[in-house]
Amino acid sequence: MRVIDLKKPVAITAWSCVGGKKEKEGPLAAGFDMLSSDDYFGQQSWEKAETAMQKYSLRSLIEKRKLNARDIDIALGGDLCNQITSTGFAYRDYMIPFGGMYGACSTMSLTMATAACLVSGGVVNNAVVGASSHFCTAERQFRTPLDYGGKRTPTAQWTVTGAANVFLEREGKGPFITKVCFGRIVDLGITDANNMGAAMAPAAVATLTEYFIHSGKRPREYDAVYTGDLGLVGSRLLKQMMEKEGFPLENHIDCGMVIFDNEKQNVPAGASGCGCSGCVLAADILPRMAAGHLKKILFMATGALLSTTTTMQKESIPSVAHLVEIVADKEDL
């Protein structure tokens, strides 16, 4: 694992996100481009709904940046559905070269980090990256039918219904991606698929620790260290472990703990899903960076690389975390 220092910082020139009903009732609602009270998004199935949501987000991004789809050099994206169909299907009406990437809930930072390398290296001039998740597609794929009566365990996180996209360019006024760090797979033996935060926290620790060691940076140099969706349990574990590793985190914020009002919206363990970190990034973090309220942050989404088959075969859950450093102004480099 190593820290990739981008010789040429990559500008984030536009962002967009779309969410569903619960996101509409949440504290970050104002930052979304579109929120639907109907989680079906007017479609006939949940999978179609997720694709529609992605298309709304993509369209919003293209309109904001006044782009022509043909001018986009590459799109990288993914979601949680088998064969990442939600994303692939969203792009089938666009003439954009597309690469699907699966990183489970780490998809947002995985695609950002990959695209940032491509743009910074001059391989492409620009790139769209994105991720989405839908509560209902995730429930029916990973758990049970929606109307099946089951009690959620107190550690079970709530999959965000949301799609987010970010546009990266060689030139622009920022914020800028300046460093990236791809994580390695970590598995500390957690088998409970209803305790994802606990499964993913060690991967977050591994990437953060490596990043601080090899970049020479310290947590306090950042206004905030964002993780993707560790939720209540994972965040607690992250803090304890980072303390042990000698890099105590005082400015840690987990996207899974801010997208909903956990108490009022009845999600005690917090949120999860690819769309969770993506939507918090596009609805909250980037706008605040553009407004100058945040100068320098780390954004690291974490993913649990399990499937229903591996769970039934009683495998433990391997996880991964990818990190990007984002700064608001070039002077802060």
Binding site: G189, N195, P202, V233, E245
Partner: peptide
């Protein structure tokens, strides 16, 4: 990582 699977399992129990 300075932590073993067993130690981690105990930590998770406490944190959950």
């Amino acid at each position: 990582m300075k932590i073993t699977r067993n130690e981690y399992s105990d930590m998770v129990k406490k944190a959950s």
